[in-house]
Design a binder for these strands. Structure first.
Length: 480
RNA sequence: GGCCCCGUCGUCCAGCGGCCUAGGACGCCGGCCUUUCACGCCGGUAACGCCAGUUCGAAUCUGGUCGGGGCUACCA
């Protein structure tokens, strides 16, 4: 039997990092087994779902390097892969289950339910549905339907009973039916709940393995019972450890960015993001941290996934992004940087050429793409803006003569190359009896505006002689 | 409250009865390199939650305890 797995995000927001991690694991599992990876949209909640999120989620997954064989955006033998277009099918299943006696109509109103739930809790009994409508005879049911009473459909959990299953990451699981109430599968408005829609899809799409967050672990017996009621064979489950924030609580908005979108915009390299995420709950090799998707595919197994929750810590992601950054081919680095540099203004051909020259020196200094902008800004402006902290630190009294002297020497240079500039500047150091720090830092700030910049002489060369001298003059003028 | 899951350095992982005076990576600290910042290199810091039990021997098995988390909707 060929492996068929899916990721089923609900388009009520951007792709959450937790879902992205599930997607990575499912993808890895599918690719390892030469199986099929499916992307389905769980949009039963029509009110909160939005088409733009579907587009953004697909974008985020492609950005991560994931591709899928069936599903939204690519099609396949199972229709649109959107639950919103399968409501008839879910209703059909619900009706069949009623006919089979596996499910029943419930006429209890929300108010009644609420009252009884509170009463039960007050009395120390489980708050779940009490099964009041489970024993209704067919005549009663029919009369109430004809009377126009609204109803919903609940699954009749076999009682007494126990559901046992094997979880690929948690091993043997066992739930007594006492703790599972007759949950709703079809709402009074005829729409399916998550449990129904998701389970029916898994059955219809012939899913073989479901790897999802541990938050669904306690719902699993419901899904198994539903599957069995449909006369189908349950999938094999793997419940992945949850992702936490730095405070050890479930990852949520207040921990900062929880959507993939934010990390794309923050300029992390997708290769790093993929690599990092694959490390959350799994490891490629005790001694190896950086590896390619192909290598991961080769070794990945859901059975090796760790049971404990993982803290999503961007420190390591940042480091990793820097690692991948330095591995980029120079032209690739330029290509990836440009969108960030050109957000406000397109570069001229000349500016672009200069950027390409200095790019390799910037490449080895940044971890995320927006840093490229900071570090190259001085190249694209007429007048650099000075970073005040940098200015104050290096523009000490002895900086005046340095600027003054540098202007004269650089102006007199007939060959404008890094080597020539460095030669004449080092000579200046000797003549002025200054160390590099004292002698060069003022020049750096004068030329790039900041103490943090690419190497000085290369920067001067790319900038050109007139501009370099002009900047030194401007700094000197500001200095006095 | 009930049910369920989890518990190794600050963080992510390795460890599946002796190879562990617990290994790697990030972070952090110190040093080297150096025109800044990075990179790179060298060194260091730091953990088996606790208590019993099983065993010749436990981070590894069992029980308890404490701690953290999840679920408990006509939300997904």
């Amino acid at each position: 039997m060929s492996v068929r797995v899916r990721i089923a995000p609900s388009p009520t927001g951007m792709l959450h990092v937790g879902n992205a991690r599930s997607a990575v694991f499912n993808w890895l599992f599918a690719r390892h087994h030469g199986g099929t990876f499916i992307v389905r949209v769980d949009d039963t909640d029509i009110a909160r779902s939005d088409e733009q999120y579907v587009t953004q989620m697909m974008e985020a997954m492609r950005w991560l390097g994931l591709d899928w064989d069936e599903g939204v955006g690519v099609g396949g033998p199972h229709g649109t892969y959107r639950q919103s277009e399968r409501f008839d099918r879910y209703r059909e299943v619900a009706e069949q289950l009623i006919a089979d006696g596996a499910a029943y109509r419930c006429f209890c109103t929300p108010e009644e339910l609420d009252d009884r739930r509170q009463a039960a809790q007050a009395a120390g009994r489980p708050p779940g549905y009490d099964g009041a409508c489970r024993t209704l005879g067919s005549e009663q049911v029919n009369t109430r339907i004809s009377a126009g009473e609204s109803f919903l459909v609940r699954l009749a959990i076999p009682r007494p009973g126990v559901t046992e299953f094997f979880d690929l990451v948690r091993d043997d699981m066992r739930f007594d039916h006492d703790v599972i109430d007759d949950f709703v599968i079809l709402r009074s408005d005829g729409t399916p709940t998550y449990h129904l829609a998701s389970t029916v899809d898994d059955v219809d799409y012939e899913i073989t393995h479901v790897a999802r967050g541990e938050d669904l672990l306690s719902s699993t017996p419901r899904h198994i019972l539903l599957t069995q009621a449909m006369g189908a064979e349950p999938v094999i489950y793997a419940h992945l450890p949850l992702l936490f924030g730095p405070d050890g609580k479930k990852l949520s908005k207040r921990h900062g960015d929880t959507s993939m979108d934010a990390y794309m915009k923050a300029g992390y390299l997708p290769e790093a993001m993929f690599n990092y995420m694959s490390l959350l709950g799994w490891s490629y090799d005790p001694e190896v941290t950086i590896y390619s998707p192909e290598q991961a595919i080769e070794k990945f197994d859901l059975a090796d996934v760790s049971k404990n929750p993982a803290v999503f810590d961007t420190k390591k992601l940042e480091w990793m992004s820097g690692e991948y950054m330095r591995e980029l081919a120079p032209h690739d680095f330029v290509a990836r940087s440009l969108p960030f540099i050109e957000v406000n203004r397109k570069l001229s051909d000349d500016e672009r050429r200069r950027f390409e020259v200095i790019a390799p020196l910037i490449q080895e200094r940044v971890k995320v793409l927006p840093e490229v902008v900071e570090m190259s800004e001085w190249l694209f402006v007429d007048d650099v803006s000075f970073d005040e902290a940098s200015w104050d630190k290096v523009m000490k009294p002895e900086a005046g003569p340095v600027l003054d002297d540098a202007i004269i020497r650089l102006e007199g240079l007939t060959e404008w190359s890094t080597e020539a500039i460095e030669g004449v500047m080092r000579q200046m150091l000797e003549d002025l009896e200054l160390n590099p720090r004292k002698g060069f830092q003022p020049l750096r700030v004068a030329v790039t505006g900041s103490m943090i910049s690419p190497p000085l002489f290369e920067s001067m060369e790319v900038l050109g002689q007139p501009a370099t001298v002009a900047r030194l003059r401007r700094a000197l003028a500001r200095f006095v």
